[in-house]
Computed example of a mutant assay.
Amino acid sequence: MAPFDLLASLGMDVYLPVVPRMPAILSTTPATVQLTLSLYMVVLGVGQMLFGPLSDRIGRRPVLLGGALLFAVASAAMAYTTWAPAFVVWRVAQAAGGAAALVATFATVRDVYADHPDGVAIYAMLGAMLAFVPAVGPVLGAVIDQALGWRAIFLMLAGLGLAALLQALLRWPESRPDGSGVKLARVGAILRHAPFWTYTLGFSAALGTFFVYFSTAPLVLMGRLALAPLTFSLLFATVAVVMIITSRLAAPLARRWGSRGCLVRGMGLLLAAATLLAAGQLTAFPSTWAFLPPMWIAAMGISITCAVTANGALRAFGDVAGTAVAIYHCLQGVITSLAGTLAVLWLPADTAWPLVAFTGAAALLTPGLVRRLPPDTLGSAGQ
């Protein structure tokens, strides 16, 4: 499952070092290039509303294989496109392929590990692998760009997509439970389930913080501080390294604090990061020390939160896991892309204010919802 957990994120992060140059390459505006980042997040979430129910109906395997093929073809097409509208269309197709692969992967995790005593550890492991991509993706993109040019970045994505497709053809069995399928009544039950919404909003706060970070970091570190792309990539990766280290601790922390306790503490770390970012913006900005250390704290909150949100949101819906995963990721994608993009567009994107606004508001909202739920509906320990 690992390649499909990684590819959807890699499609975003490996592209970051060339984002400042893409307006000139595509003969378009910076806003259009920003649109390729936002649309990717939207389609990655909304596309799962199609592929999740489809995986409940026809199975995880065909959805996964089709998504991998679409991702590879779209990535190759982007390498040979210099017309902005076509680039955006292929970017949407690439995200759709990533959405199909992602929903099939998480539905398979739910199928196989739903009753496993170490289910949280499985999600934490996938989270650690996902955190690995932002650590190496921008560095890899910068190195490939310097050595072979920007087109090679997308050809590399196409090659990895085809390699993942080949190994899945040989090794990925069908895991869809017998009798599962699209049940409209269960969709209503999912949307009325308070823990589902609470954990989904927590997941949105965590992933949205990272989305705003990678939308603003190039402008802050390469724009305001004039760092070279490789230097930017290495500094950018420090946040992901903190996520990886924290993910290694997620399972024991979840056993100690419970899902509810991890969610509340994760939001507390995000709020602390937003507070420090605001203080740094007012006293020492622009500076790497005003921008990056608070993001290391945010990274800890992101990892702790993401380790428990999927299991907490999906626990009650094993019979329609594909649909539940789709709604979970769709809502996260919509909330993240819309609220995150508004923060980036309405506030100066080369400052810390978009991060302060999004992270602070999201981190304050989620604990309020947690406190309104009975402890025994959240997590194994309910702490």
Rank of each mutant, 00 (worst) to 15 (best):
G11W: 13
W289N: 02
V320N: 02
G258F: 11
S55Q: 05
P294C: 07
V112L: 14
L162S: 04
S204I: 01
G379T: 11
A205H: 04
I304A: 06
T283R: 11
D350G: 06
T28H: 12
G258Q: 11
F87I: 14
A349E: 11
P177M: 06
P374V: 00
I297Y: 05
A147H: 07
V325H: 00
A299P: 09
T198H: 01
L378V: 07
A74K: 06
L148R: 11
L331E: 00
P367C: 02
Y328K: 05
G52C: 11
Y213I: 07
T200S: 11
Y199T: 06
P17Y: 08
F291S: 01
V220Y: 05
Y80M: 14
G202K: 02
L26P: 06
T209A: 14
R57I: 15
S27I: 00
S9Y: 09
L54C: 09
L64I: 11
L166A: 15
A185R: 15
A324Q: 12
T198G: 05
L249N: 01
V89G: 04
V187A: 14
A124V: 14
P375L: 03
L227N: 05
I144N: 07
F87P: 11
T108C: 07
R91L: 07
I327L: 15
R151M: 13
S55R: 08
V88L: 15
M295V: 10
A290W: 06
V133N: 03
R186P: 00
P138N: 04
V109N: 02
V133K: 04
V370M: 01
G59T: 07
G98S: 10
P252S: 12
T246C: 09
A104H: 07
S204E: 05
T209R: 02
L314F: 09
T32A: 15
A96S: 13
A298R: 09
L345P: 00
V63G: 13
G223Q: 03
S75W: 03
A361Y: 09
V92S: 02
G98C: 13
D178H: 13
Q281W: 08
T28N: 05
G280W: 03
V103L: 08
L355P: 06
A251D: 14
A274C: 01
L263G: 04
M12W: 01
A142D: 09
P85C: 13
D56T: 12
V325I: 14
R110F: 00
L235E: 09
V344N: 00
R176W: 03
F358W: 10
